[in-house]
């Protein structure tokens, strides 16, 4: 047990020494980035104190960063500066209504949200939540209705046979259109919740889920490649920016 502790301390001491030397030679910021990158990667071995430290630092720093970022982006630039500018336009220049006065509504909703800090007035904090959820549902209704419904519908409802520029039947384009129509219809049937998936209806729904799974398979491969590019990016950071092993 003692030996394990000693080995542990030696590993830590050597690690600190290595990082100190590299920090001196490659720069503190780059070395800190590498330190935390390796710390997060150490989770691949198992949960350990190095990972816990990196995790806590990452969470703490990012939470602080986001607080400051949101304060300057929203509270300062929209509420304080925006309303200040509206005041200037309306009262100093006499220019009448300024749209930036609307920012006050956001500010008021924010104040109402803070009411939850007072137990007796805590119920008021539900109002801004209701506004956010309700307004979101209303605003996005059209967007989703158009992108997920109307546009796909218009694109699918075309003739099956397709012709090339010379006016000859384009076999592959025709097959592609047929697959699109069958996939869309069977997919819609799969997502039809008012009828049990049995008999012929269930058979078509099965084609729908197979279509979805084939799509997911293709998407899986594509997305894995993008994840690999993230890994390559980190490795490049460690090897090029930090250790400078690759030019």
């Amino acid at each position: 047990m003692m030996n394990t502790k000693v080995v542990g301390y030696i590993v830590i001491a050597v690690g600190i020494a290595v990082f100190a030397i590299l920090a001196a030679s490659q720069g503190l910021a780059v070395t800190l980035g590498a330190f935390f990158t390796i710390g997060i990667f150490s989770f691949l071995y198992k949960d350990n104190p190095y990972y816990k430290f990196s995790e806590a630092a990452f969470v703490g720093i990012s939470a602080g960063y986001w607080f400051v970022s949101l304060f300057w982006q929203n509270m300062y630039s929209k509420l304080f500066v925006g309303v200040g500018a509206a005041y200037h336009t309306t009262f100093v220049q006499g220019g009448g209504w300024d749209d930036r006065w609307m920012m006050l509504i956001g500010g008021l909703l924010g104040v109402l949200m803070l009411m939850r800090l007072f137990p007796k007035a805590g119920w008021i904090s539900r109002w801004p939540l209701a506004v956010v959820v309700g307004a979101t549902a209303g605003l996005y209704f059209i967007n989703y209705f158009v992108s997920n419904g109307i546009l796909q519908l218009g694109a699918s409802a075309g003739p099956l046979q397709r012709y090339d520029a010379a006016g000859n039947l384009d076999l592959w384009a025709t097959i592609s259109q047929a697959i699109l129509v069958i996939g869309t219809l069977s997919g819609l049937i799969y997502f039809y919740f008012s009828k049990e998936h049995k008999g012929a209806f269930g058979g078509v729904a099965k084609i729908g889920i197979w279509t979805l799974m084939l799509t997911f398979g293709a998407s899986f491969g594509y997305t894995v490649m993008s994840r690999l590019s993230l890994l390559i990016g980190r490795m490049d950071y460690l090897m090029s920016d930090w250790l400078q092993l690759i030019n």
């Binding site: 519908l153 699918s156 409802a157 099956l160 046979q161 049937i189």
Partner: peptide, 28 residues
């Protein structure tokens, strides 16, 4: 709401079927 959306899906399916059938026959 869910049942109403199912009616929407039924309308979509019928529209696709009608559009595809009519345009295919018309073109062929």
């Amino acid at each position: 709401s869910l049942k109403g959306q199912d009616v929407g899906k039924m309308i979509a399916m019928l529209a696709i079927l009608a559009g595809v059938t009519l345009l295919t026959i018309g073109s062929l």
